[in-house]
Amino acid sequence: MSKRETLKKFTATPDTLIEYCKKIWQYKSLIIVFFKRDIKVKYAHTLLGLGWTILQPLAVLIIYTFFFGYLLNWKAGDLPYSLYVLSGLLGWNFFSYIVFQGTSSIQEAGFIIKKIYFPKAILPLSKVLVAAVELIISFLLIIPLLIWHGESLSWHIILLPVVLLFNSLIALFIVLTIVSLAFRKRDLFHLVPFLINLGVWCTPVFFTKDILPQEINHMWYFNPLASIVELWRWCLFPAWNYDIKFIPALIAIIPLFISGFLIFIRNEKKFSDFA
């Protein structure tokens, strides 16, 4: 007989951060199970299967490279425009996937939440893994582009896991906050697609950060996503310099995530009453 949850007490008071993290640890295998379920279900009954994961970013890459890079002749410093867009898309898509899927995951699981107990944070966490698989597959696109342009990867790439961690934390911050604020009144859920569409134009994904006039150029430094996307490029390309003015926004992700997580824990127990 296992020792899982042998002594428990349910009261009206929410869990502390540590208690909640312990619960997630107890249910860690569920993250993997949900992850496997999502991957299987997503590509069930498709001919291409995981191939879709590479086709989508490829199409976006081709469109943007053609329109902005070729027709409008946008430049990205020393970096070929296609590589600039791809590196931006990797971080941005990872973020937006977690936000989209994470916010809907709790709504979709309403019927399970009502009948079975598990820490609800498991659901968005499993979506991080799904997003990571998508990311790895679209990352493969970078190899032919590097060869084509005769570029090489930077040794900074060993720091990529740290970048991914920050990338996940900022996405989870958005997910956990929206979910905790919107479980009673669902208006915020309708804002998510809007926020994501707006966000991509507030982040240097397709264009370089010097597109803004000099006077308001410092606006970038308030956008944590911009700090992440730029960090991606610094990690991948030797020619790319990281603007140290981004570091405060990057560091801010940690307290943001923790506050989002705390709001989530405060509300988590009420989800089943509103699912």
Partner: peptide, 26 residues
């Protein structure tokens, strides 16, 4: 079973719980 939390009062559980409130919901 911990699915919903009480408004007041407490529940103490000593042991592993399996709550079957519905079947096949997962």
């Amino acid at each position: 079973s911990g699915i919903t939390s009480p408004t007041s009062g407490s529940v103490e559980i000593n042991g592993r719980v399996a709550a079957i409130l519905d079947i096949g919901s997962g």
